[in-house]
């Protein structure tokens, strides 16, 4: 077990180094020059003033040293939690910009992923044993998962937002408010949160429900279920086993979902103009803010790696089959 996790950890460390390196390389070969962009933004007309300004900005962004030094600095800064300065929101530090967006993304994704997982598994398990529910919930679930997400999001925004006027369709809170902890502000947050949440919940819910139903039906046909039935075990016991076993792949699925959680729901945040990480990435691309982009991607890479490591541990804990494989015992 020790060796297993040791090996895993080494693999993750290697992946991390490669990811950080790629993350550093790619923006440097992307079209666009951030310094030039800053210069055009300030629209300096005097050509003599341009040279010192260029030198200033290159210093701020750390571009005035040789490439290898930039790379080393990047690592050093990384461990100090310094991700550089944003071009788009100059001179805000990238780390601040990201930390500002993260709560929105988490508040949106955590509840939608967890609740849809919980509800989907419940309904799926019930559908596996009730013909009535199977004939109603299943087609609905298929329809939900088959709907292109963009389309569902726009439909919700249009139906509940514009036509019914119950929910606002854009932003994280009302533009008239300043963020504080008043009831008015929190209420506004909740109202703005609801539609993007609902859209994410619905799409994921259908998938979980179908998955659970099919897994349970598969488990109920497994040999161990027939054997228990042949030994006169009541259906209750067989169903309990089937449910527990069917839950294992669903747990992996959930962990994978949580792994990409940090990437934000790009499409959702665009459709509802919700100020999370996905929205940030879009802005970074549009403004050629490659420091911000780098920071966001780094954040995502770390999130995915941590989540995957957690999955490995969880899986070993819940499924005995993985345990023996690890020890190499027959």
């Amino acid at each position: 077990m020790r060796r297993y996790f040791g090996r895993k950890l080494a693999i993750y460390a290697l992946t991390f180094v490669v990811a950080v390196t790629l993350n550093w390389i790619i923006p440097r070969f992307m079209p666009g020059d951030p310094v030039l962009r800053m210069l055009t933004r300030t629209s300096v007309s005097n050509p003599e003033a341009i040279a010192p300004m260029r030198a200033y900005y290159e210093n701020v962004f750390g571009l005035d040293v040789p490439l290898w030094k930039q790379y080393v600095n990047y690592w050093v800064e990384l461990f100090q939690g310094n991700l550089g300065v944003s071009v788009w929101l100059f001179p805000a530090p990238v780390a601040d910009v990201i930390l500002h967006a993260v709560p929105y993304t988490l508040a949106l994704l955590l509840p939608s992923i967890l609740l849809s997982w919980w509800a989907g598994n419940k309904v799926g398990a019930l559908a596996a044993r009730s013909t009535w529910l199977d004939n109603t919930a299943l087609p609905v679930s298929y329809a939900l998962t088959a709907t292109p997400y963009m389309w569902l999001g726009i439909l919700l925004a249009w139906g509940l937002g514009i036509v019914a006027g119950v929910f606002p369709v854009a932003g994280g809170y009302s533009f008239e408010l300043r963020p504080d902890w008043s009831w008015v502000f929190v209420g506004s947050l909740a109202l703005h949160w609801f539609l993007p949440f609902l859209s994410l919940f619905l799409v994921a819910f259908g998938g979980w429900a179908i998955g659970m139903r099919n897994l349970i039906i598969y488990e109920l046909e497994a040999d161990y279920a027939s054997y228990l039935a042949a030994l006169g075990a009541p259906r209750r016991l067989i169903r309990r086993y089937a449910f527990r076993n069917a839950l294992l792949p669903q747990i992996t699925g959930l962990a994978l979902q949580l792994g990409v959680l940090v990437s934000g729901a790009l499409v959702t945040e665009i459709v509802f103009a919700y100020p999370g990480l996905g929205h940030l990435i879009l802005q970074a691309i549009q403004n050629q803010d490659f420091f911000l982009l780098q920071g966001a991607f780094l954040f995502i890479v770390i999130g995915v790696l941590v989540a995957n490591f957690v999955i490995d541990i969880v899986y070993v804990l819940v499924d005995p089959r993985t345990r023996t494989g690890m020890q190499g015992a027959a």
């Binding site: 040999d223 054997y227 042949a230 030994l231 006169g232 086993y241 076993n245 294992l248």
Partner: peptide
């Protein structure tokens, strides 16, 4: 039949190798 299974009639199925719940 449940009243008779296990007590009166019992079986070692052809698939005995996979007859036990793998996660218990």
């Amino acid at each position: 039949m449940n009243r008779f299974r296990f007590t009166s009639v019992s079986i070692i199925p052809q698939y005995a190798m996979s007859a036990l719940n793998p996660t218990r």
